[in-house]
Simulated assay, not measured.
Amino acid sequence: MTSLKPPAQAAALHPRAGRRCHNALNALHSTHYFSPDTGRELGEIGITHPKAVNFAARTAAMGRVGAGVVTAAFYNYKHETVAQHVPGIWDTASPEDVLAARLRAVDTTLRRLLGEDALTSPEMAEAAELALRATEACSRSARPLYSAHADLPVPEQPHLALWHAATLLREHRGDGHLTALQHAELDGLEALVSHTATGKGMRPKWNFTTRGWNQEDWDAAVERLRARGLHDGAAELTEAGVELRKDVEEATDRLDRAPYEHLGAAGVERLTELGNVFAGAALQAGAFPADLLGKE
């Protein structure tokens, strides 16, 4: 006898489920930015300046692009700083050589931070499978960094496949985030200043070190935000500023929901759980500088 019961409905995806999953995977992806292995591997092919290492590692998937393309895609870096190293880095090493060096650095970094048992565990293979499944629903439209990385082959080893998928999901969300920032009329430095004021962004000194800004630039951005009623001129966002940042994050969630809807609520929950385990282990192993986040 045929049942008259309606089919079971899949659990609805929480509005912030994708954000939470992304945050866990992004932490794992980001370990190589602070790893000495990245500097060593790129140094062996001739790229030694710390800023050049950063630009080369993240840009190589786009090919031999110039400073303008990098500034546009990165959004919150000072163009003059980018132009000091791009496109000159491609005269030192090809994008293909940089990509190979980066993957070697990711491999040794994750082996050191997580340990061999974690890399060969069923959980690592499961996380890689789930993350890659989520990427099936990513969109290339208006997402240059994601789209460039989506052209790269998926590594065979599960920990590198997970890192690759985490990179795709990170850049997919990041490209959409830039759309949300522009809609909020926040330029690159204003985005950094307002994010730092939430207590979640990098400390100003790290933005100076990595993005090329200085205190004068920072103070001018604070003043622009203050004039819009978004910043108190000291270190805090106003109520309007807090609301604007909330709107930006919610818009980013909407633009980034497709991969996580494709994976489904149960898959997203499991991937978030596994991502937090691996990211937590990396954090405990000293993957990030102790003074990276928060306000000064």
Rank of each mutant, 00 (worst) to 15 (best):
Ala240Gly: 05
Leu42Asp: 11
Val98Ala: 10
Gln182Ser: 02
Thr198His: 03
Val222Gly: 00
Thr179Cys: 00
Glu261Trp: 02
Pro289Cys: 03
Val86His: 00
Asn26Cys: 00
Glu129Gln: 08
Ala142Gly: 04
Thr198Phe: 04
Asp291Phe: 09
Leu119Tyr: 08
Asn76Arg: 10
Arg20Trp: 12
Ala131Lys: 07
Ala60Pro: 08
Ala61Ser: 13
His195Trp: 03
Leu145Ser: 05
Glu171Gly: 02
Val98Ser: 10
Gly46Val: 13
Ala240Ile: 00
Val69His: 06
Leu132Trp: 11
Trp90Tyr: 09
Gly68Val: 01
Glu129Cys: 02
Thr31Asn: 04
Ser121Glu: 05
Val69Glu: 11
Ala134Lys: 03
Met202Pro: 04
Leu274Trp: 07
Glu236Thr: 08
Ala72Pro: 00
Ala52Pro: 07
Ala282His: 09
Leu145Asn: 04
Leu160Ser: 05
Thr108Gly: 04
Gln215Asn: 03
Glu236Gly: 00
Arg64Ile: 09
Asp253Lys: 04
Thr92His: 01
Ser121Phe: 03
Gly229Ser: 07
Arg140Gly: 08
Thr167Phe: 06
Ala67Thr: 07
Trp213Asp: 02
Ala161Ile: 09
Ala73Pro: 01
Gly88Arg: 10
Val193Pro: 01
Ile45Ala: 14
Trp163Ser: 10
Leu130Val: 12
Pro122Thr: 07
Thr59Ile: 11
Arg173Met: 05
Ala10Pro: 05
Ser94Asp: 08
Arg20Asp: 13
Glu80Ala: 15
Glu243Gln: 15
Gln182Glu: 09
Ala83Met: 05
Glu273Arg: 13
Ala73Phe: 05
Pro7Ala: 13
Ile45His: 13
Pro7Phe: 09
